[in-house]
């Protein structure tokens, strides 16, 4: 009894912190999403369901108009995020394996390299990509000089550039949990599998993959969530043409002055993310107990 009181006292600051700085804003967004937009930003304190109606189809057609474009943008964002997760996984999995086999010093150095991008601003790094990808940029100049292409590749301001940028930003977030899972993988399990007659493919699918699944799921979740809501990458590298839901939210607050609609969009993104998270954690739990 005394121990649990002690524990509660220990946890109180953290709980309070989370309550004030995490749940508080969340609650504000949830409430705002159900209020009437103020003419000049802010909200009017009267219930208004049409913020969601604009998105899902029950707008009255006079004050608000239902437009499928919002769901389209949401779906596109989910698609981009899923593609980003897939590409990050394909890139990071073999590399994490390779790094895990390096001698300790080289391994530390590689981990340091992976975290290096965090030392500089995301915006700066994305502008660097803009310089690389533009028609007169490094990539095209190199390819032209080597004669691999005759005319510059049109990458900048395309959806490919958006996905490329997202993958670039998210790779470290995929790498670290994957590396941790792969590094913790008991090598003798791989040997046991082969010793029992499983070839490399069987060993990978039946032992390595399931054993590293928690890392894969963890990485996928931390890549997916920020990817869905990202608005900087589509702005800088997509030329604001490949609109994602994050851009839409940003626009509601920073140019359309429609906070409740922005809040409603944010709530929907949060709902999707929450559903993803619940699904993933259920999968991870079943993977751990199988």
């Amino acid at each position: 009894m005394r121990q649990s009181t002690f524990l509660a006292a220990l946890l109180a600051p953290a709980t309070l912190f989370l309550g004030v700085f995490f749940l508080g804003p969340l609650l504000i967004i949830a409430v705002f999403s159900l209020l009437t937009p103020g003419l000049y930003g802010g909200v009017e304190w009267s219930f208004y369901h049409q913020n969601y109606g604009r998105i899902f189809g029950w707008a009255d057609g006079i004050m608000e108009i239902y437009e499928p474009v919002y769901l389209q943008i949401l779906l596109r964002s989910l698609g981009f995020a899923a593609l980003t997760v897939g590409l990050c996984l394909v890139i990071c999995y073999p590399v994490a394996f390779w790094v895990a086999r390096l001698p300790p010093r080289a391994r530390l150095f590689c981990l340091f390299l992976v975290t290096l991008p965090f030392f500089s601003s995301l915006i700066v790094r994305l502008y660097a990509w803009l310089l690389i990808l533009k028609p007169s940029g490094l990539l095209n100049q190199t390819l032209l000089a080597t004669g691999l292409i005759q005319t510059p590749l049109e990458i900048l301001y395309t959806q490919s550039a958006v996905v490329l940028g997202l993958v670039y930003v998210m790779v470290p977030f995929m790498f670290l949990p994957l590396y941790s899972a792969i590094d913790n993988l008991d090598r003798s399990m791989v040997e046991a599998s082969m010793d029992l007659g499983a070839n490399r493919v069987q060993t990978f699918t039946k032992v390595v993959l399931p054993q590293t699944l928690p890392g894969i799921i963890g990485g996928a979740v931390i890549v997916f969530i920020p990817s869905v809501g990202n608005f900087i990458v589509p702005d800088v590298l997509g030329g604001a043409k490949g609109l994602m839901v994050g851009n839409l939210v940003e626009q509601q607050f920073l140019s359309a002055r429609n906070w409740p609609f922005g809040a409603a969009l944010a709530m929907i993104v949060m709902g999707v993310v929450l559903a993803t998270l619940l699904y993933a954690s259920a999968r991870a739990r079943s993977a751990a107990h199988a």
Partner: peptide, 12 residues
């Protein structure tokens, strides 16, 4: 609001 809608339509 009309401009917001127009802008979304143009961009998407």
């Amino acid at each position: 609001k009309l401009y917001d809608r127009a802008w979304n339509t143009i961009r998407t």
